[in-house]
Design a protein around this nucleic acid. Sequence first.
DNA 1: ATTTTATTGTCTATAAAGTAGACAATAAAA
DNA 2: TTTTATTGTCTACTTTATAGACAATAAAAT
Lengths: 238, 238
Amino acid sequence: MNQFNPEQYIPQLSIDSVIFGYRKKQLHVLISKMNFGHNIYTLPGGFISQDQGIDEAALQILKERTGLKDIFLEQYKTFGPADRKNNPILDVLDQDKPTPMPDEQAAVEWFSKRFISIGYYALVDINKVKPQKTDLDESVDWLPIESLPSLIMDHNQMVQEALETLRRNLDEKLIGFNLLPETFTMRELQELYEAVYDKAFARNNFQKKMLSLEVLERLEKKFTGAANKAPYLYRFRR
Amino acid sequence: MNQFNPEQYIPQLSIDSVIFGYRKKQLHVLISKMNFGHNIYTLPGGFISQDQGIDEAALQILKERTGLKDIFLEQYKTFGPADRKNNPILDVLDQDKPTPMPDEQAAVEWFSKRFISIGYYALVDINKVKPQKTDLDESVDWLPIESLPSLIMDHNQMVQEALETLRRNLDEKLIGFNLLPETFTMRELQELYEAVYDKAFARNNFQKKMLSLEVLERLEKKFTGAANKAPYLYRFRR
DNA sequence: ATTTTATTGTCTATAAAGTAGACAATAAAA
DNA sequence: TTTTATTGTCTACTTTATAGACAATAAAAT
């Protein structure tokens, strides 16, 4: 099974996913560091099998990297300027050093073309994910979106536009709950919103607004041991 | 210059554009009827030259079909289920009847693969457009969006999703003016909004809202000859 | 010349939604 | 028992949205 064969995969077309997680009041993105070249960082991505739909392909990539199969996943934009080539990988292939690629010749041919990438973004409960490495990854880690390294090609821009899409959709489509554990306090929900919009919200009005949406189910109180009134736990009602 | 050569054009990838125009209180879409087969209707589309960015390619297609070069054009979604093939064209090619294709063999090979299409939508002043035919068009016409024929592949769905995108963006991005002539009355603007949302608006409040946006420049009155108060003309201030 | 008709521009009143300030309730430490 | 930090909610105020009303007016009808 050759990854770089146009008979099996669609050439010049890739899928890249911005996988969002939330931890310590910060949005994080799953980033892979490749196990060749020097400090080549990329978004989790892959190619489209000839017999897979694009949503299906994106979901498979997500399963491979996160181990999860029930995931919020949405296409947001396709990126395709004329000069969009994976030069860092080509450079490595040119250097005649061994790489983990099965067929170097096919890889060179494959990557020497310009690529168009369909961008997806995903929202996951960061605690449920065990980042999985593929053959080409040295490591796969959650990095805070505020301090990402320089990514390959236009991947930094892809993250930025995914974030803009998330901001547009968070309120309207009520998708923020995908980033939280099953139960959470109102404060935790607010802190998530503040992380996404990078902006403070008034506590009283935030609570009023959220409760008015009638999508939250109030559960028992959460006694944390802190010297103050215990907050209620909530669950997303679906 | 072969249209169906992967050296020159990206294989398995196409661009299709939903070109919106506005006339007689109705949204219209530019639809081409192909000059082979029977009643094959499609969105204006094309392929991506190896040396063109996707936005560039979409713009070129638009220029070819409308004659306009300054156009509101935006990508909205990419369509790519696994079984997305252009069967109607393949059927015609199979029939061994003459078609306007330059190289039938190359065409068969080209179209026998599954295609992924990047969807764009455009807003134009319908009066400025002279629909242009290509070699493959029998006719290119403005059809009311409410009464489109059955289009090829998933093009009807592409129109529907383009309309949903237009509805989401009309207010926020103030792009409706691209569908109107240089000057227009408040009633004409309101009728456009009503056509897009398929919904009536209150005249007094619509005017108040539009004026509060401070993007309209009030010009002289328009004397139509009608037996009533003459409305002001407005221009979009940019 | 005056009245009539259809439409326009804008005003006011009311309703709904968003924002800001206040305070009692409370879990655990002091 | 008091203190502290936080939570849940109330009220007042501001802004925005919705609904009803009416004078102004261009041209036809009288």
